[in-house]
Design a protein around this nucleic acid. Sequence first.
RNA 1: GGGUGCUUAGCUCAGCUGGUCAGAGCGUCGCAUUCACAUUGCGAAGGUCGCUGGUUCGAGCCCAGCAGCACCCACCA
Length: 894
Amino acid sequence: MKEEFPKTYEHKNEEQSYQLWEKSGFFNPDTLPGVRKEPFSLSMPPPNVTGSLHIGHAMFLTIEDLMTRYARMQGKRALWLPGVDHAAIATQNVVEKDVYKKEGKTRHDIGRVELIKRIDAFVQGTRSRIETQIRRLGSSCDWSRERYTLDPDLSLAMRTVFKRMYDDGLIYRGDRIVNWCPRCKSTLADDEVDYKEQKTKLYYFKYGPVVIGTARPETKFQDKIIIVHPKDKRYKELVGKELEVEWMTGKVKARVIADPIADMEFGTGAMTITPAHSFEDFLLAQKYHLPVVKIIDEDGNLTEAAGSFKGKNARDAREEIVLLLQKKGLVEKIDEDYVHNLSLCYRCGTPVEPLPSLQWFIAVDREFRIMNQDLRKRCGKDTATLKQLALWAVRSGEINIIPGRFKKIYFHWMENLHDWCISRQIWFGHQIPVWYHKNSKLKTQNSKLCNDPFVSVEDISHCPHCGGEVEQDPDTLDTWFSSALWTFSTLGWPKNTKDFKVFHPTSVMETGYDILFFWVARMIIMTLYAVGDVPFCTVYLHGLVRDREGKKMSKSAGNGIDPLDMIAKFGADPVRLSLVVGTTPGNDIRLYEEKIAGYRNFVNKLWNIGRFIITSTGERPFAPTIDPCTLADQWILSELNSIIEQTTTAMEEYRYSAAIENLYEFTWSKFADWYIEIAKFQRVHGMKESTDAILLYSLEQILKLWHPFTPFITEELWKNLTTQVLFPERGRLRGGVNQNLLLVQPWPHKAIEPYSYRAVEHFTKLQGLIASLRTFRAEHKVNPREKLSGAIAVHQSEIKKVIADHLELVGHLAKTKLEISTEMTHPSFTLSGIRVSIDLPKKEKSSRKEREARKKYVADLERRLSDPLFLSKAPPSVVEKERQRLKAFEEMNS
RNA sequence: GGGUGCUUAGCUCAGCUGGUCAGAGCGUCGCAUUCACAUUGCGAAGGUCGCUGGUUCGAGCCCAGCAGCACCCACCA
């Protein structure tokens, strides 16, 4: 008995399908059916636990899911490992804001322990929400292996790496100038700083004999060094001199130094330096051994170095300071239209203050001995720097980046990488595994040892040397430190787990190009160091999802698309398609609702193809005998073989959009529009058995090919196909119902019949003829119900036979009764050698346009074939191809 | 200042190693509706592939220059 089969696809059953998959255990590579040797592994880029997923997440989930499903169907041990990232600063900010909004309290009011408690509770909520969202998209990831960056196992990995790097001298503590966010009260890495162009004032101040320009007068209290260019004639006399100048807080002694860093063209060519609050000036200060005096503190307020301004917010005090200088007559002029790049915290948008601070760093240029012997052999070095190794991994091709142009960007970034500041003054995250003596004044026998920080994998409470009490560094690690270990920490490293052995390095890293530096590059660095291998073999970088106008989607702009809304409206499959079709790696895509609606239409088309075949064929064996007895049969089987081959190739080459476009064209334009229509004809002409077998076989292949892209609808149709048409007891044959899931069916191979060029060529001729007849009808406004009759003359004998054999079919599809004629003096239209005359009461009209186009084409062919240069230089195969074309043409037109 | 990408039908974009490659979807226009599907079917119109040179027998596809747009990196006191 056939079950009820709705006319339109209802995506309400998606969640049930997902449950079926999840329960089957096939998301877990260990419980997949059959013997699977070749592993495939993919680490999910862990979404931040800050909120809910956006459309960008939907995109990577779709791509990664189709990669995984394809690998699984190919018989690999496919593992897609999911997880979430604690996203230290971002998450703490969200919760802090919430606490302040609801209770008017800051984190300092409620304290560290309480804040962490609140954050953990918050994370519990967002985590489960995110997990649900991931499921709604159909993501076939192995939930039994889900990880969170703060899991104990991952913390162990973090501490292990930290200790080893510290022992190797690659992690050090140093007093250096860092990017400081006065609102987050924390350091920021170089790439956590955003720049925004801003029109601001450039002040020109008299400073002794020179005039200096500055955009930040509030940092200049202790400026005592004037820098001029050595070649600058204006200041030649002053170089090396010590001067007494009137300045902000009275007279100061200033020295003049010549250094080529001064730009003679900018402003007056002279500048003073502020070592504590400018990266460049800090380097100069180191070069000339100048003191570094802090003018602005961690709260963004002025220090005692600012004299009476002490305690005031630095930026707020700016105008007041200028006023003071004005009173002193030291303001030369103020340029109001100075365009300047303001640095901002990428999390909260607060202006960043560079200031000196004692922080932990990773040394990227320091040599260390490579532990892993195999890696030493592969890169041909015993020692290297982190930077060198990371460059080698991509240069040598051990890691491939798609698209290739990002390799250049990667090299450039890596070559210019500075030491990475990894300590953050926030509370949420991995606390740095370093301990210090509580009482720093404590002197013991081992005073030297006791003064060093203790780095430990295990928590410690007492000094291992003297037994004195110790306390842990209050700072936490940059969130990217733990995510840099993601590919291996999630697989159990540093324990020698089976997972790690089987699945690492991972096969692919799929992520957005916007986090190439933040994450991908750091994974490469850290994994090469810790594991002695690459984290992944291929990096596939997708683009960003933008709105209709090409603008970035953001909450504040309100132009975002919520994937869950779209899924509720159209189903997950159309959303998935809209995120992959028309995209190429590394390029952004524009997404809007109509696009998704378009793919909803396709999904419905697929549904009706299945509906038609399943409800109109009788029960039959699972693998029916294929007996192509008509030209159309041969044609569709050839096309099917071809599409299987094309899709497989495209999948292997990561060309997913192309794969879908080809499949789409095959499914709709070839299979549905032509073969199914012909199948209806064949059924009533005594070929029901053979036609149905081919319909079923084709449907089976089509569902398999579509499954990685549109898992829900294909699984649903597959269920109907296997339970209603194919032997229902098949499920009982081995392994129960689960084995029948499309999820684990083998990927199609080219089969049955080889690709028949002849069948395709002949069938294409028939299609052309039918299309021409339809066009003719449309152009002559013939009533669709009216059946036309006419005659047809063909000279080329092979084609003539094909057409003669299919007169009835052509007549059926074009509603025209035709007969073969030998002579044709006044054809109604001509189609590459086929002349057709239709009985129309009105005067016939042959297409002049068509004739002219044909003429041009032949002339072009003739010209090239008579060109001696073409004949001598072009490869013989090309010349032969052209010759054949001309020949075929002449034959048909004769 | 340095770099990357993009510029192909009204719109959104494909075009792999140069030899029918001028394509798709959407949109537009015309016709059709008891037959799996109006979330449909049949048909039509639309482009000198940003501009200028060059290489080649042959160029959206390679090279050079220019223009516009987008993005990334660095950051000037």
